[in-house]
Amino acid sequence: MSEPKYQRILLKLSGEALMGPREFGVDPDTVASLTSQIREVHRMGIQVAVVVGGGNIFRGVSNAAAGMVRATADYMGMLATVMNSLSLQDAFEKHEIPTRVLSAFDMRQVAETYTRPRAMHHLKSGRIVIFAAGTGNPFFTTDTAAALRAVEVGADIIMKATKVDGIYTEDPVKNPNAQRIERTSHMNVLEKQLKVMDATAISLCMDNKMPILVFQMTKPGNIVKAVCGEEIGTLVEESC
């Protein structure tokens, strides 16, 4: 096995990544597969932080949220990320991996309240840290939360797990002739409006020289390859 290229990573998972074949909710087999892959990286001594979305849960109540004030709907979405974070924590703990959920909301019965020193302490102590409840503010996505937390804890890279193997010139589902981009810059992503993260998240990464790797998580072994710097997916960096 190659030597790790990164020592501290932030892994961004969509809520949909936890659904598996279900229409919404959490699929235990899918979560078990994800945590098994992340466990391999943790055993390599890599400090791992995770941000997970809430789309898999919010999708189940999206009809009820239609017509709601945007801020209220966003708060519901942030609560959904807490539920997903607890699900991941349970899966990690079953594998005897010490894990802490740090929430942007004060929810002491189920999670620790986020502070940067607390997050740094847990990471340096060898615990996986799961950041829940986004930034704690409406109108910001979990992509922006991932960018913010990555910068705060000094991650080497953001690894965004997706269903496809990188960024394409067009949607590869709609256009089978779309070309995969191996390397690009933050500015190019913004200018060409490539579907990576929202503009706020990309701008924050660009301002802080935070690289982003977009890769396919569903392929076993990919996260280890990513940590070891193998050329998979698409790398977004300061210059290319």
Rank of each mutant, 00 (worst) to 15 (best):
E3Q: 11
K5Q: 11
R8K: 15
L10A: 12
S14N: 03
G15W: 00
A17R: 06
L18M: 02
M19E: 08
G25L: 10
G25Q: 05
V31A: 11
T35L: 01
S36N: 13
R39N: 13
H42F: 09
R43C: 03
M44Y: 04
A49Y: 01
A49N: 04
G55Y: 06
I57F: 03
A66S: 12
V69D: 12
A71T: 13
A71F: 02
M76S: 04
G77T: 10
G77P: 00
V82P: 08
Q89V: 06
D90E: 15
I97W: 03
R100D: 01
D106C: 07
R108W: 05
Q109I: 14
Q109D: 12
E112H: 04
T113A: 15
R116K: 13
R116V: 14
A119M: 09
A119V: 15
A119I: 13
M120A: 13
H121Q: 11
L123D: 14
I128S: 13
I128W: 03
F131P: 00
A132R: 06
A133D: 03
T135F: 06
T142G: 06
T142N: 06
A147R: 11
R149T: 12
E152F: 10
D156N: 14
K160F: 03
V164M: 02
Y168P: 05
P172W: 01
P176S: 04
N177G: 08
Q179Y: 00
Q179C: 11
T184M: 14
H186R: 11
H186M: 08
L190T: 10
E191C: 06
L194E: 05
V196T: 09
A199C: 08
L204S: 04
L204C: 07
D207V: 15
N208H: 15
P211N: 10
P211Q: 03
I212D: 14
I212F: 09
M217W: 03
T218H: 07
N222D: 04
A226F: 02
G229V: 10
G229R: 08
G233T: 13
T234R: 08
V236A: 08
V236K: 07
